[in-house]
Computed example of a mutant assay.
Amino acid sequence: MAPELLDLLQVLAEPAWASKLSEEDRRGLIALFWSNVNPYGTFRLDMDSRLDLELPLTVPRSRIPADAAARSRAETR
Rank of each mutant, 00 (worst) to 15 (best):
S49I: 10
M47C: 07
A74S: 12
V37S: 02
L5D: 00
E4T: 09
L5E: 00
P3M: 03
D46P: 02
L12T: 07
M47W: 05
D46I: 05
V59C: 06
D7C: 09
F33C: 01
L57W: 11
M1C: 06
R61E: 08
A2C: 05
R63W: 04
L45I: 12
L57D: 13
A66P: 07
D67I: 11
L6S: 03
D25A: 13
M1I: 06
P65D: 01
G41H: 01
R71S: 08
W17R: 12
P60M: 01
G41R: 04
E75Q: 15
A69E: 13
S22A: 06
G28L: 09
D46N: 14
I64D: 00
V59W: 03
R63P: 07
F33R: 02
D52V: 11
L12P: 01
L51W: 03
E23I: 15
A18Q: 14
D48V: 05
I64V: 15
W17A: 10
A18T: 09
R73N: 08
Y40I: 07
F33T: 05
R50Q: 08
E24Y: 07
E14Q: 15
A70K: 08
E75R: 13
P56C: 00
E4Q: 08
D67G: 03
I64L: 09
E54W: 05
E4H: 04
